[in-house]
Amino acid sequence: SEEKKKAKERLERLGASSELARELLDRANGNAEKAERLLRKLL
């Protein structure tokens, strides 16, 4: 979806690899905010 694509791009801008961004979104069930929080914990 367009929303998921935007979320993935945002995670990548924050420093996630394409693969990591995809994994985070999967774990967050597509929830962009939750995926971002997970990423911030990792960085």
Results as ranks from 00 to 15, higher is better:
residue 26 D to F: 13
residue 25 L to M: 07
residue 22 R to N: 12
residue 25 L to D: 00
residue 18 S to Y: 05
residue 3 E to G: 10
residue 17 S to N: 06
residue 35 A to T: 01
residue 14 L to E: 01
residue 42 L to S: 04
residue 38 L to E: 08
residue 16 A to L: 06
residue 32 A to K: 04
residue 34 K to E: 15
residue 43 L to Q: 08
residue 42 L to P: 01
residue 5 K to D: 12
residue 12 E to F: 05
residue 19 E to H: 11
residue 4 K to V: 14
residue 1 S to T: 12
residue 17 S to F: 04
residue 12 E to V: 13
residue 25 L to P: 00
residue 41 K to G: 07
residue 31 N to F: 04
residue 21 A to K: 01
residue 36 E to H: 05
residue 12 E to N: 04
residue 40 R to K: 08
residue 22 R to D: 15
residue 21 A to E: 01
residue 28 A to E: 04
residue 35 A to M: 03
residue 20 L to R: 03
residue 25 L to S: 02
residue 26 D to Q: 13
residue 15 G to V: 03
residue 27 R to V: 08
residue 20 L to W: 05
residue 2 E to F: 11
residue 8 K to I: 15
residue 40 R to L: 12
residue 32 A to L: 15
residue 28 A to G: 02
residue 13 R to Q: 11
residue 30 G to A: 02
residue 5 K to G: 08
residue 31 N to G: 02
residue 19 E to G: 07
residue 6 K to S: 11
residue 1 S to C: 13
residue 17 S to T: 10
residue 14 L to R: 03
residue 4 K to M: 15
residue 32 A to W: 12
residue 31 N to E: 05
residue 9 E to D: 08
residue 41 K to T: 09
residue 29 N to T: 03
residue 20 L to V: 06
residue 2 E to M: 12
residue 18 S to M: 07
residue 1 S to I: 12
residue 1 S to L: 12
residue 38 L to M: 14
residue 16 A to C: 09
residue 24 L to W: 03
residue 14 L to G: 02
residue 14 L to H: 03
residue 5 K to S: 11
residue 21 A to T: 03
residue 41 K to W: 15
residue 30 G to K: 02
residue 8 K to D: 03
residue 31 N to K: 03
residue 38 L to H: 04
residue 36 E to A: 09
residue 13 R to I: 07
residue 17 S to E: 02
residue 23 E to I: 15
residue 35 A to H: 00
residue 6 K to G: 09
residue 11 L to R: 01
residue 3 E to K: 10
residue 16 A to I: 07
residue 21 A to L: 05
residue 23 E to T: 12
residue 23 E to H: 13
residue 33 E to G: 07
residue 23 E to C: 15
residue 35 A to R: 01
residue 29 N to V: 04
residue 2 E to P: 09
residue 42 L to E: 03
residue 26 D to V: 11
residue 7 A to F: 09
residue 2 E to W: 09
residue 15 G to E: 01
residue 15 G to P: 01
residue 3 E to H: 10
residue 16 A to F: 03
residue 6 K to L: 12
residue 15 G to L: 05
residue 31 N to R: 03
residue 5 K to T: 11
residue 14 L to A: 05
residue 14 L to Q: 05
residue 37 R to M: 14
residue 1 S to W: 12
residue 5 K to Y: 12
residue 29 N to Q: 10
residue 24 L to H: 00
residue 21 A to M: 04
residue 21 A to P: 00
residue 41 K to F: 14
residue 43 L to V: 05
residue 20 L to Q: 07
residue 16 A to K: 02
residue 19 E to A: 12
residue 32 A to H: 05
residue 26 D to L: 14
residue 33 E to R: 14
residue 12 E to M: 15
residue 4 K to F: 15
residue 21 A to G: 01
residue 37 R to G: 08
residue 25 L to Y: 05
residue 25 L to Q: 01
residue 10 R to L: 08
residue 15 G to D: 01
residue 2 E to Y: 11
residue 8 K to N: 07
residue 9 E to Y: 05
residue 4 K to N: 14
residue 39 L to E: 00
residue 40 R to A: 07
residue 34 K to S: 08
residue 40 R to I: 10
residue 35 A to K: 00
residue 38 L to T: 04
residue 2 E to A: 12
residue 30 G to F: 07
residue 20 L to H: 02
residue 7 A to P: 04
residue 2 E to I: 11
residue 26 D to P: 00
residue 13 R to D: 06
residue 8 K to V: 15
residue 19 E to D: 11
residue 40 R to G: 04
residue 5 K to V: 11
residue 9 E to M: 08
residue 12 E to P: 02
residue 1 S to P: 11
residue 27 R to Q: 11
residue 26 D to Y: 13
residue 39 L to C: 02
residue 13 R to C: 13
residue 29 N to E: 10
residue 24 L to V: 04
residue 33 E to T: 09
residue 23 E to F: 13
residue 29 N to W: 07
residue 8 K to S: 11
residue 1 S to E: 14
residue 25 L to H: 01
residue 18 S to A: 14
residue 30 G to T: 01
residue 43 L to P: 01
residue 31 N to W: 06
residue 43 L to S: 04
residue 43 L to R: 09
residue 29 N to H: 11
residue 11 L to D: 00
residue 4 K to R: 15
residue 5 K to W: 09
residue 11 L to M: 04
residue 19 E to C: 15
residue 19 E to Y: 05
residue 36 E to R: 07
residue 25 L to K: 00
residue 15 G to A: 03
residue 34 K to D: 14
residue 10 R to N: 06
residue 43 L to E: 02
residue 35 A to N: 01
residue 41 K to N: 11
residue 6 K to D: 09
residue 31 N to P: 00
residue 11 L to I: 03
residue 26 D to E: 14
residue 11 L to P: 00
residue 35 A to Q: 00
residue 33 E to S: 10
residue 9 E to S: 09
residue 21 A to N: 01
residue 6 K to P: 06
residue 12 E to H: 06
residue 12 E to L: 13
residue 18 S to K: 10
residue 20 L to Y: 03
residue 19 E to L: 08
residue 25 L to C: 07
residue 28 A to R: 01
residue 41 K to I: 14
residue 40 R to D: 05
residue 8 K to L: 15
residue 32 A to N: 03
residue 38 L to N: 04
residue 24 L to K: 01
residue 28 A to V: 10
residue 34 K to G: 07
residue 10 R to G: 04
residue 16 A to R: 02
residue 13 R to S: 11
residue 16 A to H: 02
residue 11 L to S: 01
residue 3 E to L: 11
residue 35 A to E: 01
residue 7 A to I: 11
residue 31 N to S: 07
residue 30 G to E: 03
residue 19 E to N: 08
residue 41 K to E: 12
residue 29 N to C: 13
residue 40 R to S: 06
residue 18 S to L: 06
residue 37 R to W: 13
residue 8 K to R: 15
residue 24 L to S: 01
residue 39 L to G: 00
residue 39 L to D: 00
residue 4 K to P: 07
residue 16 A to D: 01
residue 23 E to W: 15
residue 15 G to W: 04
residue 13 R to P: 01
residue 42 L to N: 01
residue 6 K to V: 09
residue 17 S to M: 03
residue 9 E to L: 10
residue 20 L to I: 05
residue 43 L to G: 03
residue 16 A to Y: 02
residue 22 R to Y: 09
residue 18 S to D: 08
residue 31 N to M: 03
residue 39 L to V: 00
residue 18 S to T: 08
residue 29 N to R: 10
residue 32 A to M: 13
residue 43 L to C: 12
residue 20 L to E: 04
residue 38 L to C: 10
residue 3 E to P: 08
residue 6 K to Y: 10
residue 29 N to P: 01
residue 32 A to T: 07
residue 18 S to V: 07
residue 32 A to Q: 07
residue 40 R to M: 13
residue 1 S to A: 13
residue 34 K to Q: 14
residue 17 S to L: 04
residue 33 E to H: 10
residue 6 K to E: 10
residue 41 K to R: 15
residue 8 K to Q: 15
